[in-house]
Amino acid sequence: TTYYDVLGVKPNATQEELKKAYRKLALKYHPDKNPNEGEKFKQISQAYEVLSDAKKRELYDKGGE
């Protein structure tokens, strides 16, 4: 599973699309609303952290993490 899959976006997604997808999923899986989905929330946050940063995203796209 790639970070793009976690957020449900395509690899060519814009920053705005990433932000929108992250917010939607973060609300859905937030531990306050969904106590059993803490791990999913962490995955979503990690994916967004990497993909929202241009340098980290470039490194990730080249095969790094």
Rank of each mutant, 00 (worst) to 15 (best):
L59G: 06
N34K: 07
K20T: 15
Y4A: 02
K55F: 11
P31C: 07
K33V: 15
K40S: 06
Y4R: 01
T2F: 08
E58S: 06
E17Q: 12
A26D: 02
K42Q: 13
N34Q: 08
Q15G: 10
Y3D: 01
S52I: 09
I44C: 03
S45T: 15
E65M: 15
G63S: 13
K40G: 04
E39Q: 10
H30N: 09
H30W: 06
G64W: 15
K55H: 13
K55A: 09
H30M: 06
A54P: 15
N12K: 05
T2I: 05
Y22F: 13
R23P: 01
L27C: 11
Y22V: 02
A13C: 12
L27R: 12
K24C: 12
A54C: 08
Y48H: 02
G64Q: 15
T1R: 14
D5N: 07
Y60H: 04
K28H: 09
I44K: 02
K10W: 08
E37T: 12
T14L: 04
D5F: 05
D53I: 04
L7G: 00
H30R: 09
L18A: 01
L27T: 12
G8V: 03
S45R: 14
Y22R: 01
S52F: 05
F41E: 01
G63C: 14
A21E: 05
V9Q: 03
F41A: 03
L18D: 00
F41V: 03
P31M: 07
K19A: 12
D5Y: 06
P11D: 07
G64F: 15
I44M: 04
F41D: 01
K42A: 12
P35T: 07
D5K: 08
Y60T: 02
T14P: 05
E37W: 11
V50R: 03
V9I: 08
Y29L: 05
G63A: 13
K33Q: 12
K62F: 06
Q15K: 10
T14E: 04
K10I: 04
K10F: 09
T1A: 13
K40L: 11
A13D: 03
L7W: 01
N34E: 09
L51N: 00
E37L: 10
K62T: 07
K19I: 12
K10E: 12
D5E: 09
S52P: 00
Q46W: 08
L25W: 04
D5T: 09
Y3A: 04
D32I: 11
N34S: 07
G64L: 15
Q46V: 15
A54K: 11
N12H: 08
E17S: 05
E58Y: 09
S45G: 06
N12F: 07
T1V: 13
L7F: 03
K40A: 10
D53P: 01
K40P: 04
K24P: 03
Y3W: 08
F41R: 05
E65W: 15
V6M: 11
A21Q: 05
E65F: 15
N36M: 13
L18T: 01
R57T: 03
Q46E: 13
A47I: 06
Q15R: 08
K33R: 10
K42P: 03
